[in-house]
Design a protein around this nucleic acid. Structure first.
Lengths: 153, 153
DNA sequence: CGCTAAAAAGAAATCGTTTCCCTTTGGCAC
DNA sequence: GTGCCAAAGGGAAACGATTTCTTTTTAGCG
């Protein structure tokens, strides 16, 4: 399995978003897809530096934003207010996350209950909801059981 | 109703948090309490400048954080990732917000459904939730009805 | 009234993020 | 295959919200 020949179908994903399929975008998606935890732009940049002689941090920011806007990856808002990114394997459309602020694992939460909340809010306020931020932070069962596994962001 | 003599009971609130009752803290709370919308630290600072000859922006940040940690005011995370603050009149303990990204009005949302979600998440993941971010963004009924009322943040 | 720790001022630093401008490249046309 | 052009990327620099630092002031207690 060579990343130069096996592109995990990311090329098609990029094309759908109207984005050119560049090596950097492909590798960004590869790294995010292989990583089980959410990453900061700078961390992703450091990983990319190992595979490209030249790679700028602005490029990483730009692509992360485009990919997130396209729904290919999702954002994680850490309580420290920094932005992290996560490749969502769940193909199940819109949903939310329970993130471990220790080891950075992410678990998917189905969207259902939030949709119910939205309906109630719209009914009661007469407003219109354009977006929402729903995220649960805590310790996953691994970090809960074994404090030694805990890491700091 | 003079703010020098009528302190809305904010002194007691500050004392409960172990904070000294300073004129600046009192006026910060006054301004936030009178304001129906969420404010940025800088906006609050500008308002304070009208009432104090010297008032530093770091002071505003420091106090906002202390008050938010104490639960006296609550934070609003705007999609633009800036932090805003809002004085919650609802005494009903923990709850969430529907914010209008146009006029900045805030409506309270009871906590109930989120608590149910949390229970389900804990059961399913075996983790422990330490905090959550739940916020709905959109247009309130006023801005929905009258686009002229809309303002940009 | 004096003391002491907390609070505040003001300037400067920090740092995540974005902008600018120039160079390179993907992808379609011929 | 070659050329073209808009999109993508590099690198430096700007930006701007937030924080840190050091000194001065003040609240609140004895």
């Amino acid at each position: 399995m060579n990343s130069d020949t096996e592109n995990h179908g990311f090329g098609a994903v990029l094309k759908e978003l109207g984005l050119k399929e560049t090596p950097k975008r492909r590798v960004m998606l590869e790294i995010l897809a292989e990583e089980q935890r959410f990453l900061s732009p700078e961390e992703l940049w450091l990983a990319l530096k190992g595979r490209f002689k030249t790679i700028g941090l602005p490029t990483v920011y730009r692509n992360l934003e485009e990919l997130a806007n396209g729904g290919v990856i999702s954002t994680v808002i850490h309580p420290n207010r920094q932005l992290y990114y996560y490749f969502c394997t769940a193909e199940s459309g819109h949903h939310h996350h329970f993130i471990c602020t220790s080891c950075r694992r992410v678990e998917d939460i189905p969207e259902c209950t939030v949709a119910a909340m939205e309906g109630e809010i719209v009914t009661r306020t007469g407003g219109k909801i354009t977006s929402h931020i729903v995220q649960f932070n805590g310790f996953c069962r691994h970090c809960l059981a074994d404090p030694n596994e805990r890491t700091a962001i």
